[in-house]
């Protein structure tokens, strides 16, 4: 391929004719250089783009107390996030599966030290929701039931992705269904990841009404009391 052969004159060699040399072009250095360049570009590119998580917070304007939206106690779940730190190194504790150890103290309805429970982000195991995800999905099962149907329709190709997105959004904010209101309160020790995990759970469980607040004195007292009463928390696995 890389050689250029000059044609013979009918195979008959004339005397005194110039010697025909096959011209070879060696492409090896060219390949070497190209490989180097490819390596450079491969290392410099970002193939995976970052994902984003949408967040809407209320504005900081002062709202008159009586105008504040009050959540029905029967619908409310308050999650207080906490992260455990290694006392020696000061780094967040790591679970066996490599994720950071976050603890969620949650109560339903009004703050009451008797109803506080402890959970963690466990994700799924054996196709079942675990940990806090299970609790939230139980509270939002009416929405989730319809969501599963919608998702199946989309997977079967009955509706397009856009329709699915629109319908699941409508479904998540359908006021005729029984839906919880989740108040996420990242505690003083909680890392940024704990918050993202909590907001993620909202997405997974199709909870449209959630708010992020800072814990108040009542919450701190509640947690302190809870921690005092339950010195050995159940190990998360």
């Amino acid at each position: 391929m890389a050689q250029i052969e000059q044609s013979d004159n009918g195979g008959k060699k004339k005397k005194g004719a110039q010697k025909k040399i096959a011209i070879h072009v060696d492409f090896t250095p060219m390949v070497d250089m190209n490989m180097l360049l490819i390596t450079f570009f491969m290392l410099c590119t970002t193939m995976i783009k970052s994902q984003t998580l949408q967040l809407a917070l209320p504005s900081n304007e002062k709202v008159e107390n009586q105008n504040k939206n009050q959540t029905k106690a029967s619908e409310a779940i308050t999650m207080i996030l906490d992260t455990e730190y290694d006392a020696k190194t000061g780094e967040p504790m790591i679970n066996e599966n490599g994720s950071t150890k976050h603890v969620i103290y949650y109560y339903e309805g009004k703050p009451d030290s008797a109803t506080v429970k402890q959970e963690s982000f466990l994700g799924n195991a054996k196709g079942e929701f675990q940990g806090i995800r299970k609790i939230l999905s139980d509270r939002n099962k009416e929405v989730l039931k319809k969501y599963v149907v919608l998702k199946q329709e989309w997977r079967d190709g009955k509706i397009t992705k856009e329709e699915f997105d629109k319908k699941s959004r409508e479904n998540a904010s359908d006021s005729t269904l029984k839906r919880p209101v989740v108040i996420i309160k990242p505690g003083p020790n909680a890392t940024y990841e704990a918050l993202i995990n909590a907001v993620d759970e909202m997405q997974i469980n199709q909870i449209s009404r959630y708010n992020i607040e800072l814990p108040n004195a009542t919450d701190s007292a509640l947690i302190a009391k809870f921690k005092g009463e339950a010195p050995a928390p159940a190990p998360a696995n």
Binding site: Q51, N60, F129
Partner: peptide, 23 residues
């Protein structure tokens, strides 16, 4: 929030496949 730019996005990485399956 004070600037009334109370809608924004947070940059995250994608969670591994097993984490999000089964939902």
């Amino acid at each position: 929030q004070t600037m009334k730019l109370n809608k924004f996005t947070l940059m995250t990485a994608l969670k591994s496949e097993e984490e999000q399956s089964a939902n």
